[in-house]
Structures are given as structure tokens and as C-alpha cells.
Amino acid sequence: MGRIEQAFARLQGEGRKALIPFITAGDPDPGLTVPLLRTLVRAGADVIELGVPFSDPMADGPTIQRASERALAKGVSLRQVLSLVATFRGEDRRTPIVLMGYANPIEAMGVEAFAAAAAAAGVDGVLVVDYPPEESADFAAALQRHAIDPIFLLAPTSSDARIAQVGALASGYIYYVSLKGVTGSATLDVAAVAARIPEIRARTGVPVGVGFGIRDAATAAAVARIADAVVVGSRLIEEIERSAAATACDNVLTLLSGIRHAIDAAAPATGEP
């Protein structure tokens, strides 16, 4: 059983929901990435999504694009991201790491070489934003050969047929994009999200995390009542962006701990699998 599956099994046993924070590797400096990863774990992260910087992050909003630009300005490459993961993995054998990024840096390295290197570094899942299921059968197979979970996005606009198509390839969890728009967009309609989750769980057989538009503890708690995992990204990046390097970890710890408490205090889900 992979680390992601273990994490969700453990949480289910405890009657808790997963907290999945997202940060961009190398933002604002590669030297801060491993300390930030440790901080996320201290704040109660169950899985961590680590963004791989890309020059043209088409599906992201301005906040995550700026994080990418700061990391790229420091020369952060996919290889360096993998070595940061390996360093973290040396001290934490338990917290799953999911790389999230775009296809081109992976294709430049070569899909098979990437899958092997990611597995060696201790990566547990990979979400490639611009690899929808119809373009990623080979990629998903390469990841699974190396015991890495291919994580896919689903959206409010995804048809039942597509949900089934994603379900056939996905393992680990599904990332449900809670609204139309890019990362960091403003509002989230919890009722609309709640209506889709049971259906997605039933058709895919993997846990469902919800992200995009979760900016505070109250929204996180509301999402925790209906989904298996809560993904928080842009809000954390903003915190890192406006913190000095010396205080970034403390500020992220405070923010994410508050969200963790809100999720744990949320009423038990009505739509449990």
C-alpha cells in the first residue's frame, strides 16, 4: 500500500479529513523549501502537494504564477525539485508528497526517466495539470510501474463519462476543482460542490480532495464536511510572499494550524464513503 493510500486509510479510521497544503518548490528560495515542508507537517498536513515551477502556468492564477517566477529566477529545475523531495524524504518517511506541475518539464526529462527519478526521490503522486486522461495513458502507466499514483483533476463541468474515464486511470485521490477559474480565484459554492462529491467517489473508487478557492478556516471546515480532503494553495503562497524569509515558516505554521483545527472541529461528514 502506497503512502497516499495509507494516509487516507489512517484518516478514515480516525474519522478525520485530510489537509493537503500546496507550496511551490523553490519559492522564494530553494533553501526554504525543506524547512517549509517540515512546517507543513508540523501544522498537520496529511499529504503535501509540491508545485514544480513552470514558465507558463496556464491554469494557475497570478499568485502561483508569481511563486513559479520567483523559483525560476533562482534557477530551480525539475531535477532540483526532486533532490529537495529526496532531502525531505530522508527525514520524513510518512508524509506523502505529490508533485503538481505542467507537462513540458517532464517531457524534457523524458517520461520514463522522470518516473524512475521521482520514485527514487520518494515522490508518491504526480498531477500534471495539462495531461487530461485522453493524453496520459502512457504517462499514468509509467508512473504506476514505479508505484507512483497518477492524480487527476475533475471539474464541475466534467461529464459522467469523463469521471469514469478518469476513474479508470487514477489512484491515490482525485483533485476536484471546486469552481470555474484558475487557482486562487475568489469564491466557492459549497452546496454545488457537495452535490458532485458522492457521485465522483462512487464512479472512481478513490478519495476526493477539493481545492481552488479555499482561503480561510471557515471554508476549509465547510469543505471538510463534504469531501475527503481539503487542498489549500494560493492562500499559503500569499503568506509566504508577504513574509520575510526568517518568519515565513512561523507565519505558515500559524495559518495552516488554524485551518487544521477548523477541519478537525467540523461536524462529521454526511456523505462518508
Binding site: 491554469a59 495539462d130 483533476l153 466534467s158 476543482v177
Partner: peptide, 10 residues
């Protein structure tokens, strides 16, 4: 091909 995020597929 179609290399876009799921949000654009529909």
C-alpha cells in the same frame, strides 16, 4: 492533441 486542464475540456 488536447493538453489542457480538465476545467477547459467541456
Amino acid at each position: 492533441g488536447v493538453f489542457v486542464a480538465e476545467t477547459l475540456i467541456a
